[in-house]
Each structure stands twice: as C-alpha cells, then as structure tokens.
Design a binder for these strands. Structure first.
Ligand SMILES: NC(=O)c1ccc[n+]([C@@H]2O[C@H](COP(=O)([O-])OP(=O)(O)OC[C@H]3O[C@@H](n4cnc5c(N)ncnc54)[C@H](O)[C@@H]3O)[C@@H](O)[C@H]2O)c1
Ligand SMILES: NC(=O)c1ccc[n+]([C@@H]2O[C@H](COP(=O)([O-])OP(=O)(O)OC[C@H]3O[C@@H](n4cnc5c(N)ncnc54)[C@H](O)[C@@H]3O)[C@@H](O)[C@H]2O)c1
Lengths: 255, 255
DNA sequence: TACCGCTTGTGAACGCTCGCACAAAGTCGG
DNA sequence: CCGACTTTGTGCGAGCGTTCACAAGCGGTA
C-alpha cells in the first residue's frame, strides 16, 4: 500500500488499523453501487465480493467500527454507509487546495470524483504568472503567494501537490506553513514534513515498475541467477540498452 | 500500498517480497538523484535517508537481490542501479497501451515520466469516434476495436485504463483477451481478471478519504463513541446533510 | 602482517495482517 | 413458544513485514 505512513499511531490508541482504513473507502463505493441497485440489506459475503475482498476480512474490518450488522440477515446498506462515512470523517465536506495547474492539475481540477465523495476544491494555485487568473471549472487560479490567506479564508486542511518534483518540497513547506495538515503528493519525490502532518503519494512510475517486475517474472519463471554474488564484471552493463537477448515476451499468457 | 494483490506468490517460490518490490523503484529514484549529484558510492544510511526509509529495511530489501555492497564502504551507485533495474525487469523497454483519452488520458499521454523510466506508450485507444484520429504527442488515437491487432503488432503487455468506471471492466476484458497481462487501473472500481494477470489501481478518492480519516482523528482526539452498539435510531440519518451538529471543523489545525 | 574502524548482511524478536472456523445471536416458519 | 437455519463477530494460529543489534567482512594504516 502506499507508504510514507500517515500519523504513526502512538502505540496505545484504540484506533482502526491502517489496513482497515485503506479498505473502508472501497466498501463505501460498493455500498453506493448496491444502494443504487435498490438493495436495502447486504450480507458480508455479497459486500465482500463486490469489494473484491475476503468476507472474513470484511467482517473484521467492520467490527472495528462497532456492531452494525444483524445476525442471520446482514447489514443495512444505508446505516452501514453512514457509519463508514462517519468513521472516515466524511460527514463534513473537506476543503482542498490544488497546487500546480499543469497537465495533471487540469485533469484533477475537472475531476467529478472529488465533489461526489465529499471533497471541495476550494482553491487552485500556481506559480506561473501566465496561469494566474485562468478560470478552470469556474475556479480562478490564484498565485501561490496567496496560499496563506486562501487557506485561512476557505478553511483548507488538505493540499494536493501537482507540480514538478523539484518544486514539490518547497510547495509542501508552504502548505504546511499555511496550516495544511494532510497532503496528497503526485510529484515523484519523497517529501519531509513535521510530525502531525500526513502525506500520501500517488506515483505512476512506481506502479508501472511494480507491474514490470511481475511481468518480468512471468516471462522468466524462476531465474537462474538464484544466488548472485558480486560477479565483478560478469554480465555487463548499459542499463537501457538491452540486457542479454530480448526475452520471448509474448506467448506467455493469453488465457 | 495499493492493494488487489498482484500475482499471488505461490507459497514456496524464492521471490522478492511484495513490500520490497514496492520500494525498489523508490531506491532507484534516489540512486538516480545521487548519480546526478556525482556520487560514486553510497552507504545504506544515506540512501535510506534519501528514500525516506529505515536503513535496516533498505539493507534487508537489497539483500534479496544479492550481495552488491562492500562492507566498510557502501554500495556502488552505478552497479546498484543496474541490479535493481534488472530485478524490476527494466532492462527492457515495455510497451504500454493507454485506453481512454479523456481528461486524465490526455495528461497521462503527455507525461514525460513514462519514457524516462523505460516505458513506451505504444498506443492510445478510445471508443469515441470523435477522438479517433486525434494526434496526441505524436501518437495517433486508434479505435478500441483495433486493440487486438495493435497489441500483437507493438508487443504490448501492459495496459492502462483511464475510462469511466462503467466501461472499465469491459475494457479490462478486451485488454486481457488481446494478450495484455498487466493492467494499471485509474477507474474507481474493482476489476476481475483471470489468474496470471496483474492489476494495480490508482484511486484518488480513496487516498483523499484516507487523509480525511486521519484529519478527522486529529480534530477529535479519541472519540467518545468508543463502544457503539446499534443504537436503533440514535444519531440519525442523511449522510451528506449534516450528521448531528456539524463538527467544530476549523480551529483545529492551523498550528 | 596485524590491527582498527566502518558498514554490510542477517538472526531473532515483535507486531500487524490475514483467513479459518465456530459459538453467539438473530430471523423465520410452524 | 420452539427449533431449524442463517449470518455476524471474533479467538486463534500462521505468515509477512519491520526493526534491533551484532558478527562478519572489507579497506586502510602502521
Ligand atoms: N501528467 C501526468 O500524467 C502525470 C502523471 C503522474 C505524475 N505526474 C507528476 O505530476 C506533476 C505535474 O505534472 P504535469 O504534467 O502536470 O506538469 P506540468 O509542468 O504540466 O505542470 C506543473 C505546474 O506546476 C506549476 N508550478 C511549478 N512550480 C511551482 C511552484 N513552486 N508553486 C506552484 N506551482 C508551481 C507550473 O507552473 C505548472 O503549471 C509532476 O511532478 C509529474 O511528475 C504527472
Ligand atoms: N480526471 C481526473 O483527474 C481523474 C482522477 C482520478 C481518476 N479518474 C478516473 O479516470 C477515469 C477517466 O477520467 P476522465 O476525467 O479522463 O474521464 P473522461 O470522460 O474525460 O474520459 C474518458 C474517456 O474514455 C473513453 N471511453 C469510454 N468508454 C470507453 C470504452 N469502452 N473503450 C474505450 N474508451 C472509452 C471516452 O470516450 C473518453 O474519451 C474515470 O474513471 C475517472 O473516475 C480521473
């Protein structure tokens, strides 16, 4: 799961496990679909299937919130939706600041999935004077220097960073200084923040590289280089060149 | 970490742990920065700091690849870069198909981070006839029906889904049928795939909701509703309305 | 060559997560 | 009211991931 652990739970603390928190939004989505389909109640088995998890795991996850099921029947869709929303803090609408209105920033600004889940893009900010003043989805792009005032005025506590990596730490510091305590980072870099500030990252390249690993593993079952031991100039060199014979690629999968 | 576990490792199998695989790309990025800065060697302590992890964890992670460090000295930056790249299967350039050239798809198509990490966008596809033929970053948008031929011709093994959620499963099935064995999904839904196909998801809303949870926790230390027990109509109703007195919201953060 | 300081690689302990399996607790039909 | 059936909530064991702490190994120095 994404890393850079958020809010190191302080040993004691009767909190909900991180792994559970990460799944609650998925359950919420599945519940929403069930509600649209007209279901009033749902069993852990059904809900688990919709969410793509084991039913025992689902029940254990929900048990952390309290006892909201009915034995022999299942869970009330509406009630459970409310309880999960409450646990996630979605009973209030969070204001979000989006910094960096480039390619990705434009897509994010126009994303309907924010509003529908209880988040409001309260501000768009950029450092480029040419972008300031631009109107995107009815929101005016403001200069990054106005950040403190905007955060204060709009009551913003969540920031999204969509600037190039070299600027990300600077922007992050500015967000923190302005009072933002949760940050979602799209730039491919590690951010350092003071205690009490949570950072989560979304990194395309990392996801692709993980897929690459598994793809590679599928292509060559278990490699021969089982126990490598620093062969001085054994298999040599030049990374993006072509490492000893391009693999058989295809013919592996397909049903 | 993202979830929907890729390629259930079959019990035995001397493979690299998933948690380690997920961090290798981060190390790679840190190494790249060190190389640019002119370092020839690096200690586990330095590299761990750059990557934002514990140095013991870093060493254990690297130990899964083999013994490529020198005691008393550290790791050779270039050698380690090669070894990690090799382990991740980045010594070859993977061809990627991007399906859904809407808001997000456009941003992704123009993203330089793909190419620089060894991925090549080999095809853009969409179902909307109005988009077919459009030229984006020098690549022609093709119709989704041409998927099988394109996958075959370009040797594509990785697919990226950037269509609306209702189309995602259909597109996924088409990708799998065409021979794609790794999928990165941006649509907010669960995909089901046959064994042998890996799926990873990137979901904005989930990330924000996790941040919301922690933000909420910061606001109200440990809640009073410690042991809830199905209060029949206790605190009631209407989720996006205002759950029993809108919380004190502001005044919490702003350090 | 013998010694010293530094850093790796890893054994071992601990905590978190997962999934099984089942008792407890509810519904429903008679 | 009772008994059969269904589904939740959870105790428990196994496995994975993280961290500590240190012996082993390497380069440098006398
Ligand atoms: N485009 C994608 O699909 C994509 C995908 C994954 C990750 N990313 C990452 O997201 C980030 C943004 O990507 P992009 O393609 O939108 O880049 P971009 O260059 O199109 O946009 C970056 C924007 O950030 C602004 N900016 C730069 N420095 C700033 C600062 N100090 N304060 C405020 N604003 C600042 C720039 O003016 C620009 O408008 C990058 O880190 C990139 O690696 C992008
Ligand atoms: N825009 C964002 O910032 C953002 C952020 C996170 C997640 N997402 C998700 O990414 C997905 C795409 O978002 P978007 O804003 O780009 O939407 P969009 O509507 O702008 O683009 C979707 C594209 O997919 C194409 N499409 C639809 N059905 C198709 C099919 N069966 N085969 C091929 N192509 C098909 C459409 O023609 C359209 O071009 C959505 O699932 C969205 O929830 C978007």
């Amino acid at each position: 799961m994404t890393d850079q652990r958020p809010s190191a739970r302080t040993g004691r603390d009767r909190g909900i496990p991180d792994a559970t928190v990460a799944r609650l939004p998925v359950y919420l989505r599945a519940l929403s679909a069930l509600a649209d389909a007209g279901s009033d109640t749902v069993s852990s088995e059904e809900l688990a299937t919709s969410a793509g998890v084991n039913s025992a795991k689902l029940r254990k996850d929900l048990s952390h919130l309290g006892s909201y099921g009915t034995r022999g029947v299942g869970y009330d869709v509406e009630l459970l939706t409310e309880e999960i929303s409450l646990a996630l803090g979605l009973s209030q609408r969070w204001a979000v600041a989006l910094v960096g209105v480039g390619n990705l920033g434009h897509a994010l600004a126009g994303y309907a999935g924010f509003a529908s889940r209880g988040f409001r893009i309260a501000a768009l900010l950029d450092a480029d004077p040419a972008r300031v003043g631009e109107l995107i989805q009815g929101i005016n792009v403001q200069h990054i220097d106005d950040l403190p005032a905007v955060v204060e005025h709009e009551g913003i506590s969540i920031g999204v960073i969509a600037t190039p990596a070299p600027s990300a730490q600077l922007v992050c510091d500015q967000l923190v200084a302005a009072g933002v305590t949760s940050i979602l980072n799209f730039a491919p870099c590690v951010l350092s923040v003071p205690d009490g500030v949570d950072v989560r990252k979304v990194d395309l390249s990392i996801e692709l590289q993980i897929l690459s690993f598994h793809e590679n593993r599928k292509a060559f079952g278990a490699q021969p280089n089982q126990f490598a031991k620093k062969q001085p100039p054994g298999r040599l060199t030049t990374l993006p060149g072509g490492a000893a014979g391009t693999p058989p690629a295809r013919e592996v999968v397909n049903e």
